[in-house]
Design a binder for these strands. Structure first.
Lengths: 224, 224
DNA sequence: GTTTTCACCGACCGATCGGTCAAGTCCGGC
DNA sequence: GCCGGACTTGACCGATCGGTCGGTGAAAAC
């Protein structure tokens, strides 16, 4: 039972699914993440689950559907997941919360996340590809809104908003390529460090308030 | 001829190769980049080149060798390429030059770069995988050296060096997922913007020198 | 003029791919 | 006792995979 609940942890939003389906989604996610969609055969998935290949087709109509269930679980609700974790307060703190929440999502649904961001960055399925872009844009626009908010409040300087969003998302999205769950910090802690670096900058020196600008209370300046 | 020289641009360090080999490497790079290694068949490559599949095996011993030639051309010399473009001067400017040079490399060998970073992040070929990690480490350690230099010179504050390196590389490595060569800035310009954001920070306010620290002349503070 | 070399091709191979299907097992309700 | 439905299987399918093989035609070497 502990094993099943562990597996459940890796699969997002599959509440109504049976244990077997959850097991398939978990194993498929791991395989898609490490070997890619094309590099993973239905036989691989069946073998990893200790079941026959036919059984996969009893629970899913085809390989694409397995991938879709894995990927949908990891990206469909990312926006909602993050949005609900943004507290009231200074805009810069909202940006930090955005980064930490995204990192938490990554930690919780790591394999599904990797599977969905690695495979199919040019999806041959046009409808699915378009839907993916829509979700990505909604997520990215949400972040841009927070950045604009912080600029309007005078907490951050007048930077290029889309480019700033890309920098922040890059720091989070690339994490799966080097993150090692057995070492170092949690994804949330890493996101926090990155926020500090990006917000306060690397440059040595001491910040003084600009006349007319609101005093930025947010963000910590810590040495490591 | 112009067509051949254009193709040559996308393939690094294949000086001694024939035009046909260069064409195969260029087309294979594009295909590997957009569909992945497993998702690209030898028939796909042959079709894209307008030749028979047999001819691929006349010029290369197998599929792996084509991939290796594509990937090696893109990563083997990255370290040397970047190292030779680091000027003498303030350490922070070296970091900036590092970022701009990496971006230039990305622009010049875009498809090969994407192919080599997308496919095989868990390479089944153990020797090749180890070699790749070695090259990556050498590149990353080079950057860490520059960061440490900047800290010792008092140009940047006492941040966590490996984590700072990861932030910088993340901003560059994720670029291929959103960069559009037809729009906006060049990769070098983007790298320059990212350096400004990371070095100076997003936070509004004015920097004053810390007593005892060398005055950081490097890095520009610009609004966009 | 003959032979060697080399870029190139169509036909073919065994293995594996995603996917199907008829048949069996298990199990609670009657 | 048995019946219906959920779960599970091994045998099998056509298509495609990476890779091989014998051969062609033209230019280079002799």
């Amino acid at each position: 039972m502990t094993e099943l609940s562990t597996m459940k942890d890796g699969v997002a939003n599959q509440a109504e699914a049976s244990d077997r389906v959850l097991q398939i989604l978990a194993e498929a996610g791991r395989l898609f993440a490490s070997k890619g969609f094309e590099g993973t055969s239905m036989r691989d998935i069946a073998l990893a689950c200790g079941i026959s290949k036919s059984l996969l087709y009893h629970h899913f109509s085809n390989k694409d559907e397995i991938y879709a269930r894995v990927a949908v679980g990891s990206t469909l609700e990312l926006y909602l997941f993050v949005r609900d974790r943004i507290p009231d307060g200074p805009p810069s703190q909202k940006i930090r919360a955005f980064m930490v929440a995204t990192a938490e999502y990554f930690r919780r649904y790591r394999w599904a996340w990797i599977a969905s961001t690695t495979a199919f960055w040019n999806d041959p399925d046009r409808h699915r590809h378009k839907e993916r872009l829509t979700r990505r844009d909604r997520f990215e626009n949400f972040l841009r809104g927070l950045i604009q908010e912080a600029i309007d409040a005078g907490e951050i300087r007048k930077v290029d908003v889309p480019m700033t969003g890309r920098l922040i998302l890059s720091s989070l999205n690339w994490m799966h390529r080097w993150y090692n769950p057995n070492k170092s910090a949690t994804p949330e802690q890493i996101a926090d460090i990155f926020f500090d670096m990006i917000f306060n900058g690397l440059r040595s020196g001491q910040l003084v308030e600009l006349p007319g600008a609101e005093p930025p209370k947010a963000g910590r300046r810590k040495s490591r």
